[in-house]
């Protein structure tokens, strides 16, 4: 059995230890908000927070995830919730499939860097693909979130 701490709750699962976290989340535990997009760590659709950092869950075997604090799009952390609000205000999503991954990457960025420059945002978000092309709004949403936080 492997124990995974997801969104503050422990889940004991009986699965191949080499199974990537992505598939344990989606097919075993039932957190389908984390998406499969490429399976090779190239698109960022599967991003989750691991101890506050954004990681590609499609590359992370569950055996290495024990004892980690994992947060998915269904979870709650301060920056994620603030970003979700600005995402709504700016109507960021189109199809929406990549947006959980985008939000997780943005959360990790603001966790580390509360006042990111445009270049910081570009660098942090370069791991995520949006085929619909919502980058301009994503960037604006991150900037607005950071500004709102600073004002508070």
């Amino acid at each position: 059995m492997i124990t995974l701490n997801i969104n503050g709750k422990n889940h004991e699962i009986d699965a191949d230890p080499s199974m990537p976290l992505l598939w344990a989340l989606r097919d075993i535990i039932g957190y389908t908000g984390t998406k499969y997009g490429c399976g090779k760590g190239l698109c960022g659709s599967c991003m989750v927070l691991m101890d506050g950092n954004a990681v590609n869950s499609c590359l992370m075997p569950i055996s290495a995830m024990q004892g980690r604090a994992l947060i998915t799009i269904e979870g709650e952390t301060e920056n994620l919730q603030k970003l979700q609000q600005t995402w709504t205000d700016l109507n960021v999503p189109q199809c929406g499939f990549c947006q959980p991954g985008q939000l997780i990457s943005a959360t990790a960025l603001l966790n580390k860097n509360p006042k990111p420059s445009e270049e910081d945002i570009d660098n942090a978000m370069a791991r995520n693909i949006c085929r619909c092309g919502t980058y301009q709004r994503i960037k604006k949403a991150i900037q607005n979130t950071a500004e709102i936080k600073i004002k508070q």
Partner: peptide
């Protein structure tokens, strides 16, 4: 400028795309 009726489901990971659909005893 109505926002998408699905926006809250999308940003919270609750939106059901094809890949997210589950039915009992589903095989892959």
């Amino acid at each position: 400028e109505l926002p998408s009726i699905d926006i809250h489901d999308i940003i919270s990971g609750k939106a059901i795309f094809g890949l997210d659909k589950r039915v009992p005893n589903l095989k892959f």
